[in-house]
Nucleic acid binder design. Structure first.
Lengths: 221, 221, 221, 221
DNA sequence: TATGAATGAGGTTTCATTCAT
DNA sequence: AATGAATGAAACCTCATTCAT
């Protein structure tokens, strides 16, 4: 009867819930700054909590990373759905989604834990599937509107988004802050995606299989 | 200090030199597959050598990674110089360089060792500076030819190249090989880079400072 | 850097403080028995703790040795100060100090880590300087009392004390215990130090420089 | 029929014999400078030979150390025998032996390999026994002459000699050479040994057992 | 429930020893 | 016979995870 893991059902005490949120936020930042090899101790230090508290809420590091991924994907999903509400999908709406996802992504959750692949849990699998479906919808409709080049698909978009370089934070506090270049390169990316596109795209377009493999390879989820 | 490390002057025995080459190649692949957190033991296993042999030639992991970086950058530099030999620089020549560098890069050396920044040694600093200078030349001349959008500079190119997702290899040998998507996305990137460009690029263009900070942050070199 | 190392400020939990004490004691004994090449694992085993615990409190082996040195020197300093409280300093008081220091010393911290010299940290430097000053006081006053030969100085005493052979413990527990000869030879040493002394002492008396070099050479502190 | 180990009987080629001598000399110096933990590679470097050559002549490190010990003890034995040739043994002759042995000893072979005890081979056992017997002779006859205090024996002398601090060499070549203090302290030691002695010597005098244990503990021989 | 000390498996690095050249 | 590159066991050290307070 040791509730080391929190009961999945009973709602958490208010302060406990706050802790969970804070840990997620801090951890996201820590992994962004230091990569997946950042220690849990670092997360504990920055959040002002004990390591035990973190482990109370997240049974291990992989789960913590998975929760971050779920959170980020959930936010992306919401954004895509907002764009899908419009009809027809304009280039502006499409661009808004891409820029938004890039900004989320530039929190650089990925790629973090190459070579430590674990299978994604059901919750992550679910958001991922939903997100991919929504994006597929968006891509198709944007193409139907004639503004997005026809030789790319939703999986391409995901993979390209994952390729935007993250904001590169530096630990030396005396370094001046650096402009977030992710947004800058999204501009180039969008221009490259505009219909009709002139460079021929080599290689066949990726499918679900490629995406899944990429996820397994890059953040083990 | 002790002769465990080879003397910098006397040429290595033939077989030893071969080993050095092989270690570099294998290590590049290993880091590409598993990320910076790959163990030296893994490099040893895959190259069929003892760990001691690796340490004889590379005093520590950071140096090994640095040597790989030097090698990769050297190859890129050669490629850029080849393009610079032509006059004027055509879009095709520029594209060839970008595709080549992408392919090299997709060996995914970067980003590997976030948060373990060390200063680059003199040799790496040298190639890096040369490479950046050559690229700057190339970018300027391609722009002068009117085919590359004017609002990007050499540093942009470098950072965008670094953003192409790497070939995602899987350790489970039973996985079917996956197409190298890097080349595919280079096409999109190139279309985005073509003059005149329609998406406005937010953020000021990066300078040497941003590049350096990126390198420190991503592969600690 | 990470909180794996304890914060210098907040006081340790009661049991942790006890562990620190115990580690110091056990390590002193281990190094006495096995020399500096004794492994941390041995210290862990004998103290019934995990290696990680030792590294939590002492970031590396050199620091552990340094803490032992600080402890031993602190105890010697206290002893010397006690003798200095008397006036005039009698031969008996001087002898008591020497015997005490010998006994401490016979815990054989030194010479331990020849060839691995590191500079002493500020705390060790401080005790060392204080100890040397106090000894200098003691020697001068004992000489003024006419009982200690005039051709030796405090540095001589230190170096000679360092020369008393340590208690030679054996790991095979079945060996019978052996008498502590350190005390025996201190007698001979004291007789040799008594005024006026008849053997001429070759070589100039050592100075601070010789002592420092000896410390660097013998225990790297 | 691989003569990895040299045949014990057939005389070595002239240059090979030279190598053996040189290795012994260099190794003695290296262990003096760096302690037992000095690497064989260091010996190889300083002697300008390959490591293989060293292993051709000395099957392992322990044997190398043992050969050095045999050499040093042999020289001591010769010196003692020279003193024994005189009758009666004067204080001067006794002092000459002690000073000589100290000087040899200050090459600091011992204590080197604490905690790595191996049994001494037959040759080392033999010299050691001879040396102890000769010293016993010397001590007895010096005492009979009334100049050496009566409460010490040959074993005491050995142990005290082993306690003289070694010449402390420093690797930083820019350090000025430091005077050899061993000789200086031998003076104090000799004064302490002179008859009749006033400090009472605590503890019973050591016997063969104590000496043997000391040797096992300090240089594993 | 929160804390941070303790644990120990696993990674990095060193070096005695072997062996192909 | 000599060389120095290769080996791998063992040391050092880190950090995910557990658990006593």
């Amino acid at each position: 009867m040791t509730p080391t893991t929190p009961p999945a059902d009973r709602p958490l005490r208010a302060d406990a819930r706050q802790n969970v949120e804070q840990i997620l936020d801090v951890a996201q930042q820590v992994f962004a700054d230091l990569g997946y090899q950042a220690s849990i101790a670092e997360v504990a230090k920055r959040s002002g909590l004990g390591m035990g508290t973190i482990y109370r809420h997240f049974p291990n590091k992989a789960v913590l990373v998975e929760r971050i991924a779920i959170k980020v994907m959930g936010e992306s999903l919401a954004q895509v759905r907002r764009a899908l509400a419009e009809e027809p999908v304009t280039w502006t709406a499409f661009g808004r989604v891409v820029r938004h996802m890039t900004r989320l992504r530039s929190s650089q959750l990925f790629p973090v834990s190459r070579g430590r692949a674990t299978d994604a849990g059901p919750e992550l699998s679910a958001v991922r599937t939903e997100l991919l479906a929504a994006l597929d919808d968006l891509v198709t409709r944007t193409q139907r509107a004639g503004v997005l080049r026809d030789d790319v698909n939703a999986y391409d978009i995901v993979l390209m988004l994952n390729s935007i370089p993250p904001r590169h934070t530096s630990d030396s506090a005396d370094d001046e802050p650096v402009s977030d270049l992710a947004d800058r390169y999204t501009g180039v990316l969008l221009d490259g995606l505009r219909a009709p596109g002139s460079e021929p795209l080599s290689q066949p377009a990726p499918g679900r299989r490629e995406i899944d493999q990429f996820f397994r390879a890059t953040h083990g989820l």
